[in-house]
Amino acid sequence: MNQLSDNNFRERIADTTEGIVIFYKELCPHCKNMEKVLEKFSAAHPHVALHAVNLEKNPESASMAGAERAPTILVIHDGEIRASRAGLMNFREMNAFYTENI
């Protein structure tokens, strides 16, 4: 999972053809659970880039993405944020969320 920050968030998203971003908080139990889902998702979709942003340390990126809560998941396609959802999803829901938004 690539760690992004306020310094490089905008550029890295612009460079991403297909990707997922998770805004997370340290020690957040929900984020830990969602990261496991993303690991499974990544194994099924190895071509999709996986980015992570610490919500508390990167307020500008969070504001840019409209991410107020952790975890928030973004779907990136052709350098643009196509969709955003806060909360938990299971593997099947995550798959659907991704494929419906690219």
């Binding site: 908080k25 957040c28 929900h30 919500l55 508390e56 307020p59 969070a62 107020e68 809560r69 952790a70 975890p71 928030t72 806060a86 909360g87 938990l88």
Partner: peptide, 10 residues
């Protein structure tokens, strides 16, 4: 609601 599964900064 999604608040159950999320938390805010801080």
């Amino acid at each position: 609601d999604e608040e159950m599964w999320t938390c805010t900064a801080g």
